[in-house]
Amino acid sequence: MIIDAHQHFWQFDPVRDAWITEEMQTIRKDFLPEDLKPVLEKNGVDGCVAVQADQSETETDFLLQLANENDFIKGVVGWADLRGADIKSRLEHYSKFPLLKGFRHIVQGEPDKNFLLRDDFGNGIKALAEYDFTYDILVYPHQLPAVGEFVKKFHEQPLVIDHLAKPDFETGELKSWEQHIRNIARYKNVYCKLSGMVTEADLQNWEYEDFVPFLEVALEAFGPDRLMFGSDWPVCLLAAEYEEVIGIVRQFVGKLSASEQTQIMGGNAAEFYKLK
């Protein structure tokens, strides 16, 4: 089964979705399951994981409703305030929804580079384990030192790094990012998504070769059993069509064995998120 481990849905709201600026006209509109389904079918993808784009429980409920109505949405990564004093009661509530697999916070948008290490946030992460939820790590490279401490502290919590932690594909700066990624990958509970790459490169002039050095590091560090393909659709449309995005990963993993390709293109996502 081929699984897109990372995509989004929204009904565009210019106030709520202020991160989608005027320069991003391509994605300043609604993107719903009826838009994605034919794209997945065209590209031979069997299902997807819908990931939050807004930090609200309204967003979590919206994605769960879509998942209940569309069986190709195999799981949801939602949002709840992990810093909240009531986090256990919120997780108790969401544990009643089998399609909710985990949570994410948009840490890349937090001014505190050590946000992940806050005590109140850590309390929320601890609570995830009680309800068998995963956690998606969304950060920029300058936040990777904190990620290193974070994964060491929560070495039994299922964690996945989104978008390879957004390295600078445009300049090709590899050294610092690589050092941190290799350190983080030592913890076997941490997975990594091969996603969100084209929008961190030169949007109009990216080439496959821009990504290869970073993909090589990720493959060597995490191995084929802890990497997963994700499209980051529809955000990816700022730089590439879906078939181009999946083509990057398919071309890269083409040198691997059939079983390793199967793992990266869906098996690992199914295992990590416990998809049915």
Rank of each mutant, 00 (worst) to 15 (best):
V51W: 06
L36I: 04
L117A: 04
K193M: 13
K74N: 08
S176I: 13
W206P: 03
K193S: 11
L64W: 01
I3A: 05
D136T: 09
L256V: 02
L138Y: 12
W79M: 02
N70I: 05
R118Q: 15
D13I: 06
Y140Q: 10
M228W: 08
G124E: 03
F154G: 02
Y94V: 04
Q157T: 14
S95W: 10
N114I: 03
F103W: 01
L219K: 10
S259I: 14
F31M: 10
K255V: 14
L219S: 07
Q55K: 11
L99Y: 09
Q11K: 14
R182Y: 06
N268A: 11
M1H: 09
G44W: 11
L203Q: 11
G102A: 09
T171D: 10
T262G: 11
F272R: 06
P158C: 08
V235I: 15
S195I: 12
K74R: 13
K276H: 10
F252A: 00
E130D: 14
G75E: 02
R118I: 02
A85T: 14
L215Y: 11
K101V: 04
A85M: 11
F97W: 12
D120L: 04
E241H: 12
D4S: 02
F121W: 01
R182V: 05
A218Y: 07
L215Q: 12
I181W: 04
L128M: 03
E216K: 15
P14D: 02
T60K: 05
W206T: 05
W206G: 03
L203W: 13
M197Q: 07
Q143V: 02
D210N: 13
V198G: 08
L275M: 09
Y242T: 00
A80D: 05
V107C: 07
M265R: 00
K42R: 15
Y140E: 12
I125S: 00
E260S: 15
A80T: 15
Y187N: 14
E244L: 11
F150S: 00
I73F: 06
T199D: 11
L91C: 09
P14W: 01
D46P: 07
V77A: 06
F31E: 05
A85E: 13
Y135N: 03
